Simulated assay, not measured.
Amino acid sequence: MSVIGTTVKPFTAQAYKNGEFVEVTEENFKGQWTILCFYPADFTFVCPTELEDLQEEYDTLKEMGAEVYSASTDTHFTHKAWHETSDAIGKVTYTMIGDPSLTLPANFEVLREGQGLADRGTFIIDPDGVIQVADIHAEGIGRDASVIVEKLKAAQYVHNNPGEVCPAKWKEGSETLKPSIDLVGKI
């Protein structure tokens, strides 16, 4: 079952952000665009490279009206320890959600049953709390945060321009399409 077009289900989790523990719920994902990136575990190999890359795009994403959250099934305490011991993770200033209850990865359908880990999943959520993008990777395949920026641009364009869609390789400022019977068979 796809989570695309569904509203974020209720959850409550503890998180680590800028030296503090904070509570995060589905309400935090409303009122602005949200980027939620699940990863398998703290103190691993590909994960810190991704989270550091995401930090490098964080200011750009914030300028676009989006807040960023990373999430794993580790605890918020583990996130703090990782933040204090890893050069890459020490740079992270966005919210790092810990969910040992497994609720959040189950809600987003990225929970590895029987393993207690989340798959590598990226979700873009609109200001109404509706999931617009879901992208799942195998554990060994790291994400490129610049691609997340491009997907957010397209999601925002479609959200703000009803009746228009973004074709393949669409870049901000390029032409879009207006689906109609007149286009059938002509693209």
Rank of each mutant, 00 (worst) to 15 (best):
M1L: 14
M1Q: 13
M1R: 14
S2F: 08
T6N: 07
V8I: 09
K9C: 08
F11G: 03
T12N: 13
A13M: 09
A13D: 09
Q14C: 11
A15T: 13
N18D: 15
N18P: 12
G19M: 07
V22Q: 11
E23D: 15
V24H: 00
E27S: 05
E27L: 02
N28W: 08
F29A: 03
G31V: 02
W33S: 04
T34P: 08
T34S: 13
I35C: 05
I35R: 01
I35L: 10
C37D: 13
C37V: 15
F38P: 07
Y39E: 06
T44I: 03
F45H: 03
V46I: 02
C47P: 01
P48M: 05
T49N: 14
E50R: 01
E52M: 15
E52T: 14
D53W: 04
D53C: 04
L54I: 13
E56C: 13
E56V: 12
Y58K: 09
D59V: 12
L61Y: 04
K62S: 11
K62W: 06
A66T: 08
Y69M: 12
A71Q: 13
T73C: 10
D74Q: 00
T75F: 03
H76V: 07
F77P: 11
K80F: 05
K80G: 07
K80N: 11
A81S: 13
W82D: 06
W82V: 01
E84M: 08
T85I: 11
S86M: 02
S86L: 05
D87H: 10
D87E: 15
D87P: 10
A88H: 10
I89S: 02
I89M: 06
K91D: 02
M96D: 10
M96A: 14
D99P: 07
S101C: 08
T103R: 12
T103Q: 11
L104M: 14
P105A: 04
P105K: 08
N107K: 06
V110E: 08
L111H: 00
R112H: 08
E113K: 02
Q115L: 08
Q115G: 04
Q115F: 05
G116S: 06
D119M: 15
R120D: 07
R120P: 06
T122K: 06
T122S: 06
T122R: 02
F123N: 02
F123Y: 11
I125H: 00
I125N: 01
D128C: 11
V130T: 12
V130Y: 04
V133T: 10
A134H: 14
A138D: 15
G140T: 12
I141K: 13
G142K: 03
G142D: 00
G142W: 00
A145V: 04
S146I: 09
V147C: 12
V149I: 01
V149W: 00
E150Q: 15
E150Y: 12
A154C: 01
A154R: 03
A154D: 01
A155K: 04
Q156N: 02
Q156V: 04
V158T: 12
V158C: 05
V158Q: 09
V158D: 08
H159Y: 15
N160I: 03
N160V: 04
N161R: 01
P162N: 05
G163L: 03
V165M: 08
V165H: 05
V165S: 06
C166H: 00
A168F: 10
K169D: 15
K171V: 11
G173N: 05
L177G: 04
K178D: 01
P179F: 05
I181Y: 14
L183D: 10
V184W: 13
K186N: 10
I187R: 13
